[in-house]
Design a protein around this nucleic acid. Structure first.
Lengths: 240, 240
DNA sequence: TCAGCAATTTGATTTGGAACAATCGGATTT
DNA sequence: AAATCCGATTGTTCCAAATCAAATTGCTGA
């Protein structure tokens, strides 16, 4: 069922001039008929495609986390985007991918062939919505890379992992029966985080240790971080 | 005549799965009929819209140069995109602009109302093409901000101003009667360049002086730079 | 032509993060 | 349980770019 895969942006409706056609999202039959629903699975660190590969299909992340990155000839790497459930990848302006796509965790993908996209207005609209969302995230990340300190970068990164941030009661104790949204899974090594934030592993590690020492976070099993003081971290992002 | 305004991406055709519908670009009558062709003019440093303004129309840069930027609460600024002839702006995923748009030079814009975009497949395709192009440029700029040195940043910036770069004969003398593509107009102050490259004005100035001393460029009237040795600059971008 | 001002350049100093170098800690293997 | 491995952490030193501070250049208008 394709409607289950087109989930992430359905809450983004409004009166913007160019935002896709949300009414169609409620009736996905047109696409279901044509799309055999091909799925693809990846293990952590599998590469889906390399920069320079021929761009022939689009993918939607159904489960798991992926990253897009670019390499400089001398080996420096910059992770340019993190893709989560509902995000699409595989876009290309030219014939070839401008980034490498690699799985950070186990990943399940929905695959769309080129022709199904260009012939389906619904797909076009959904793809457009994804592009706009990615563009805004890239703008925000550009500010991080161009103007923020290491502490601000790591704090911003952590805040980005907290679901429904911006709500009130950010200091209160955990509600009974609620999932613990204050414990976030990094699903990335220190090296991957560093390459995403434009820092070195050592700097990322030092900032995390500093936040730990200040009592703002607790590190559990290195890949899982409990944010004891969300407001405190939020104040450190440079955005408040 | 709208065809004159939809120029920039016509050379980007290919077999990519999702790249707009270039055949339509040859027959722009559909759009001409509906679009009264409203134009808008800006002087240098005029703001077209502010971050947070309601997003209600799209714009195409017909002439001149603009920038998109974001501000942090303490006044730090990051220029996230430079828009030139053929580029579109005004996209929004939500109802509000995520960036401020300001003219760097005198600018002439073509204005498109929200409904004309969502009802015209041709516009949708063109907009899509623009989004994909901007996305790739943002990826490249992300690498610059995250991983490049000041010298590499400024060199990359200069190379981005050279039209048809990558051609042969980059060292040869000027052809008779050819426009001098080796003299580029910055159309930006040092502060604007610094805010684009994630540096300070002093660092930008020092790198430019260094390139001057090394005989790679000549600065004319501060806003115009003659690149005496394109290959030399190209080698400094970190990409070769 | 000459103030006056703003933008740029240049100089001196500081500093945040990189680079280099151990060490630690948890997981896996034997 | 000991050995190995690999990612993460911590310590030290170094350096590129930021910051602070003049000096210079170029532009504008009287």
């Amino acid at each position: 069922m394709v409607s289950a895969t087109l989930t992430k942006h359905s809450d983004l409706d409004g009166q913007a001039p160019f935002k896709g056609c949300q009414e169609n999202f409620k009736q996905p039959e047109g696409l279901v008929g044509k799309n055999p629903g091909r799925k693809q699975r990846l293990s952590a660190h599998d590469v889906l495609f390399y920069e320079g590969d021929k761009a022939e299909r689009l993918y939607e992340v159904v489960r798991g986390v992926m990253m897009l990155y670019k390499l400089l000839p001398d080996g420096r790497r910059q992770v340019v985007y993190i893709l989560r459930e509902g995000d699409m990848l595989g876009f290309s302006n030219r014939d070839f991918f401008d980034c490498t796509a690699e799985a950070l965790t186990e990943v399940e993908l929905q695959v769309f062939e080129g022709r199904e996209i260009s012939t389906s207005p619904m797909m076009q609209h959904y793809v457009n919505r994804c592009l706009l969302s990615q563009m805004e995230n890239l703008h925000e990340h550009t500010v991080l890379l161009g103007r923020k300190s290491a502490l601000e970068r790591v704090s911003t990164f952590l805040m980005g992992l907290v679901p429904n941030r911006g709500g009130h009661g950010c200091e209160g104790p955990l509600e009974e029966g609620q999932p613990d949204t204050r414990t976030v899974e990094l699903s990335m090594t220190r090296q991957e985080i560093a390459d995403y934030l434009g820092l070195t592993i050592e700097t990322v590690s030092r900032v995390i240790s500093q936040l730990k020492r200040r009592g703002l976070i607790k590190v559990e099993k290195q890949d899982s971080i409990h944010i004891s003081n969300i407001c405190g971290i939020c104040q450190l992002t440079g955005m408040h």
